[in-house]
Amino acid sequence: MKAVVCKTWGLPDTLVVDELPDVVPGEGQVAIRVEAAGVNFPDVLIIQNKYQFKPELPFTPGGELAGTVTAVGAGVDRYKVGDRVIAFVGQGAFAQQIAVPMKSVMPMPPGMDFDIAAAITLTYGTSHHAVVDRAQLKAGETMLVLGAAGGVGLAAIEIGKALGARVIAAASSDEKLEVCRQHGADALINYSTQDLREAIKAATDGKGPDVIYDPVGGVYAEPAFRSIAWRGRYLVIGFANGEIPKLPLNLPLLKGASIVGVFWGEFVRREPKGNATAMAELMGWLAEGKIRPHISGRYALADTPKALNDMAARKVTGKVVIQPQR
């Protein structure tokens, strides 16, 4: 089988496609033919050794996938050959085959295609954990989403609307904001052309957002936080900008506001039952049409470096997927 391999830490162009032995599932494992693998911003960081999760070299990147079960190991009783499944894994998804623990697998809902299935676990899982669990966003509240046209940003918009909140989308271009509008955003801010604080003030009648969802970091963090409402919750999702902001701690004091960390991968590890409940709710919303992953690009396995470069250059809206069998 073919797989993308990271042999040395570096930028996406250092990745290679190698021929590796076919996988054989061990005890408690499920072997999957990978039909689609979701691409996420952490993948760009992991191959550079810049992420919390640090695999040993060499390794195959890619954290989420959808495909068909080809074999099961001893002790596996929940899945059989031919089942269509989704899996969230630490690494290994950018390959034609993978063997994963049974606990990392869940069945694909009937009628779902592989690309959509591969695009839902990390982005929607992260945003559900952030918005529902950590922020406790309520109907009638207002949420500001920074970097709103990215995968987690669009997921946050849709989840906010599913909960009955008002959602303000902030992004770097009018084209990206149009995608946000199509996915339910009530108000739009172009922070490349507008003063962020003034635009937030105008969009909230001076009250500020109850929740700020920030996967970007960098220069937008402080002006956004200065605009937060009383008792607001500021969600620290990640730092796509590349700069970890340093917020003055008098700001949360003055607003009675909270800075709330969000680390979905650790949540999955520590609280698997809570994650299972969240994923069940997301699948229900998907069936009802309340969420609909936006797939903006599909790449062959050999084009994985281009997919990651596009992600790093912030050219991606929503999600892109690798189709390893191409």
Rank of each mutant, 00 (worst) to 15 (best):
P252A: 04
F263G: 13
L249H: 06
K255T: 01
A278T: 06
L254A: 04
F239D: 10
E266G: 12
K246Y: 10
A240H: 05
V268Y: 01
A280R: 08
V262L: 04
N241V: 03
P252M: 04
L249E: 07
G274D: 03
K255S: 03
I244E: 09
R269W: 09
L253R: 07
S258W: 10
E243N: 12
E271W: 07
P272K: 05
P245V: 02
G261D: 05
P252K: 01
L251H: 05
F267C: 11
P245L: 06
E271C: 13
A278R: 12
G265T: 02
L282V: 01
V262I: 08
A278I: 06
L247D: 02
V260I: 04
A257S: 02
N275T: 13
N250T: 06
M279S: 03
K246E: 13
L247W: 00
V260D: 04
N250Q: 07
G256V: 10
E281S: 08
A278M: 09
L254R: 06
L251D: 08
I244S: 11
F263K: 05
P272M: 04
L247Y: 00
L254D: 03
E266M: 07
A280V: 08
E243D: 12
I259R: 02
V260C: 08
S258Y: 10
N250C: 11
A276S: 13
L247G: 01
G261W: 05
A257D: 00
E281W: 10
P245G: 10
R269F: 05
E243L: 09
N250V: 15
F263R: 08
W264F: 07
G256A: 11
P272Q: 06
E243P: 04
T277E: 14
M279R: 11
I259T: 04
W264S: 03
